[in-house]
Write a protein that binds this DNA or RNA. Structure first.
Lengths: 265, 265
DNA sequence: CGGCTCCTTGAGGTTAATCAATCCTGGTGG
DNA sequence: CCACCAGGATTGATTAACCTCAAGGAGCCG
């Protein structure tokens, strides 16, 4: 689903390029309610950028004066640490924006990089702010996107205060919700998933194993199936201290294969 | 510095109340650039709310249709878990807003509660959005506040991926930066600080002790003094893996009481 | 002087990261 | 068709981090 025709189109000069941008903007759910005229003004302050896979878009701390909309491809937002370990904060989806903080801040708070060859629409912050003064509806749209991000980051903070099994449970529930139903497919490597959960591949592997042993899910390659949704939901709330209190039976899976009969709650 | 005159003023009807709100809005750094007319429109959609100390303003998950500006007192934003443990995400400062996510989301992502008797200005989201369409500058201001929050939450996520000593080091550096200089005062209990760092009082106590033993800081009650800023800055980057690599001497403090007369804890 | 709350200290146990193999699995070339 | 290889994925052993429980201090009013 990457960009096979992209290079061709981008080589075309001026007018055509604007059309591409307009199409990109029109297709973004974020800008769904805008009139053609509003889209035109927006397109006038946007630039198209194409990047190969695995390329940084900007790094944490970079002084920035632009934010981006993902038109095609895949991008992730990450935090990187001194010893090269990194945690994925967010996968940017098609039509979503990223780097908005720079609208009113002088540096990016996180790094981003492409996961596939991608096409981005780039908005200069100064021009965009000026545009908002003329088109207040645009401001409301961006505020909406930022509000969503606030909620998402708030969830991420909450997750990191929970133990790994709870984070994994949440992720699996979200994933199966987002795709059809109990059976769902992981679109990234398990190492990437570990990073997304703020842990390491080894721990992820063991935790998945415990889930399988507890009959909460099945795993086949990168396909998961939720077997015991209530138990996962319980685990997702689980902050580790209730371990000693009780309710551990739904979860405790000693090395024996005793087949926790309680699953099937 | 709480509200001794508040009750009196609030008992006054109509006109006076509006004046109070206008003063509150005028004093908020966020609204510094607005004209009197703009402030007036803003005040027209605001309500004043007074709350005693220790009272929830709203809880995580509450359906909400208003966000708030802190005019007087103190408020904190927290995440609470099943077993009653809670972590403080943010201390709201005078003149700052909180709960903005609800502008475009149907529920609050975190809980908030007053830490002192407080006076809040309350903005209905529907009316506020309508107002933004008429006064785009207002939208830019709120976007700015939201952008700051995005940066702050991003930092919070980053912190939680770091070990406790790094989080404490960051907090102390920020605190001493924010107040005059190396010597700084903690405005909350140490238990609260533990919650702010996403840990428990015992761990905080031990970590502080290690800092003191390592001559990084001194502690007297709730007064801290930074002695070795570079070492703290190094620790703040510290993601736990560099532990084995080197530079541990600045930090390693065995159980022996080998010459730390400064432990006048 | 209790009683109170907060902070500290100690002992013990659980979680999860690290280190170090080993095992798949899909792709490649003989 | 199969040996081989590289990358990711698993597993085991070890260790560090830090949370829990439980028992003292230390300051602060009534």
């Amino acid at each position: 689903m990457a960009g096979e025709a992209v290079g061709e189109i981008r080589r075309a000069p001026g007018a055509i390029l604007v059309v591409v941008i307009l199409d990109d903007l029109r297709q973004a759910p974020l800008f769904a309610g805008l009139t053609d005229e509003q889209l035109g003004r927006l397109g006038a302050v946007a630039q198209t950028v194409s990047l190969p896979a695995g390329e940084p878009v900007f790094a944490q701390g970079d002084p920035g004066n632009a934010f981006y909309l993902l038109a095609e491809g895949a991008v992730k937002v990450v935090k990187t640490f001194s010893n090269e370990r990194s945690a994925t904060i967010r996968y940017v989806r098609l039509g979503e924006t990223f780097g908005e903080s720079v609208l009113f801040s002088d540096a990016y708070p996180s790094s981003t990089e492409t996961m596939e060859p991608s096409r981005l629409c780039c908005f200069d912050t100064g021009e965009f702010r000026r545009l908002v003064l003329a088109e207040p509806a645009l401001g409301l749209l961006i505020m909406g996107a930022m509000a969503q991000l606030l909620v998402m980051l708030s969830q991420r903070v909450e997750e990191l205060l929970l133990p790994v099994p709870a984070r994994l449970a949440r992720f699996l529930l979200d994933l199966s919700e987002e795709q059809g139903e109990p059976r769902c497919h992981l679109m990234v490597t398990k190492g990437e998933l570990a990073s997304r959960l703020g842990t390491v591949p080894e721990t992820l592997s063991r935790t998945l194993h415990r889930f399988v042993a507890g009959r909460l899910i099945t795993v086949q390659g990168s396909t998961f199936e939720v077997l015991n949704r209530p138990a996962l939901e319980h685990l997702a709330q689980y902050d580790g201290a209730s371990l000693h209190s009780r309710t551990s039976d739904t979860w405790a899976v000693p090395r024996s294969r005793d087949a926790s009969p309680s699953s099937r709650v």
